[in-house]
Structures are given as structure tokens and as C-alpha cells.
């Protein structure tokens, strides 16, 4: 089963993301900040990390840089999911090793499209 670590300091966002991901067959774990996310990844590396940018303790971009250094360039796949929507922020995230980027607010359709781009949606045509 595909698994996703949802990293966001907002409980509301974590719950909404969990609902959407579980509906698509993902097993979901949660973390409230970058440090908790790093600990969770060390315990078991997920296939996908859905990552907020602005969080206390350790922000998303710091987590991203740590994760790429520690776990390598490809795994886990990391998708920012943040209110930061400036072009330069998106470029920074990509240059730091993110594979995808969602600008909040988002809905199930946007998330599904991005999962498809990442090759993480089952092929419905098959």
C-alpha cells in the first residue's frame, strides 16, 4: 500500500488531506512540524511527503533540505502544500529537491492531478 506522511501544523489541513488520501487508498501518518517529519521518516521512509512550508520548530524547506541530504534525491517524493504561492518560492522548493508543489487552497481534484503527475495514482484505464 502507498503511504503518505502529511506534515502540517494545522490539524484541519491534516485531517482534510488524510481524508482525501485515504479515499485514494493511501495509508497516512501525520507530523506537526519538520522535526517530527524527520523523525517519522527515520522510523520508516514513506513513499510521499505532503509538506507545509511555514511551521514552528522546523519549517518545510529546512525539512526538505535535511531529507534530501539524509535520504537522497528521489525518495521519499516530496510535494509542498502551502499558502506560499510566489514564483520564487516555487523555484526555491524545486531547487531544494521537491518533486511537486500545491498552492493552497486545494481540493481533491488538484491533489489527484498532482498524484497522477507523480505516478502515484492507480491507472483507472487499466
Amino acid at each position: 500500500m502507498l503511504d503518505c506522511l502529511v506534515v502540517d501544523d494545522s490539524r484541519t489541513v491534516r485531517r482534510a488531506a488524510r481524508r482525501m488520501l485515504e479515499a485514494r487508498g493511501f495509508a497516512v501518518r501525520e507530523a506537526e512540524d519538520g522535526q517530527q517529519a524527520l523523525d517519522a521518516c527515520r522510523a520508516a521512509l514513506p513513499k510521499l511527503v505532503l509538506l507545509d512550508w511555514n511551521m514552528p520548530v522546523m519549517d518545510g524547506i529546512t525539512f526538505l533540505r535535511h531529507a534530501r541530504k539524509e535520504f537522497g534525491p528521489d525518495e521519499p517524493q516530496i510535494m509542498l502544500c502551502t499558502t506560499e504561492s510566489d514564483f520564487s518560492r516555487i523555484v526555491t522548493a524545486l531547487e531544494s529537491g521537491a518533486q511537486e508543489y500545491i498552492m493552497k487552497p486545494f481540493d481533491d481534484e488538484i491533489l489527484a492531478g498532482k498524484l497522477e503527475v507523480l505516478g502515484l495514482l492507480p491507472d483507472e484505464a487499466a
Binding site: 514564483f87 511537486e100 508543489y101 498552492m103 492531478g113 498532482k114 497522477e116 503527475v117
Partner: peptide
Amino acid sequence: VQRGLPVQMLV
């Protein structure tokens, strides 16, 4: 621009 468009294409 988020519906189906890979972020690399957006940038």
C-alpha cells in the same frame, strides 16, 4: 494551473 499541470511546466 494546478489542475493537471506539472509544477515544472508551470515554472
